[in-house]
């Protein structure tokens, strides 16, 4: 057994787990944060995407012990209680989700994408950047719309703040 210490959604948490425990299982089972999902075994679908030290990663392909000491943000920590992050709001506004299972990974991916490309996204870039996330419900049409809308809104917000 190993001790794992993480800062998750702004809170420092520690727990014992087997060394073979994946980060996603640590998050879901030890921390009870079940918004992060598992949709495949081969690191393809992206339902498990969280941010680790500011970057999107697939928590199904990282051991919890590897992540120990890191800062992790999950879907539950993206916005304040009862609030929606602009990306979450855009997914709702543009119907970028149906069954909701891929959604947390999609949203975390979109936030990372906007962080890296801020204000410069176009449809082709968004589609290319979604390579690591599979959705079976939406045909991606409205996900792409939502990401572009969130990018525009967040970029306008940044400009207004400057």
């Amino acid at each position: 057994m190993a001790k794992v210490t993480l800062t998750v959604n702004g809170r420092t948490v520690s727990g014992e787990c087997e060394e073979r425990t994946l980060l996603v299982h640590f998050i879901r089972e030890k921390l009870g944060l079940t918004g992060t999902h598992v949709g495949c075994d081969t690191s393809q679908c992206g339902a498990c995407v969280v941010h680790m030290d500011g970057h999107s990663v697939k928590s199904c392909s990282i051991l919890a012990v590897q992540a120990s000491g890191s800062t992790v943000t999950t879907i539950e920590g993206l916005a304040g209680q009862g609030e929606l992050h602009p990306v979450q709001a855009a997914f709702k506004e543009h119907h970028g989700l149906q069954c909701g299972f891929c959604t947390p990974g999609m949203v975390m991916t979109a936030v990372d994408m906007i962080n890296r490309h801020g204000g410069n996204l176009d449809e082709a870039t968004v589609r290319a950047e979604l390579e690591g996330n599979i959705c079976r419900c939406t045909g991606y049409h409205n996900i792409v719309k939502a990401v572009l809308a969130a990018d525009a809104e967040m970029s306008a917000g940044r400009q207004a703040a400057e």
Partner: peptide, 9 residues
Amino acid sequence: IGDPHVRHM
């Protein structure tokens, strides 16, 4: 290589 998340690791 891979996808954005894979490239981060």
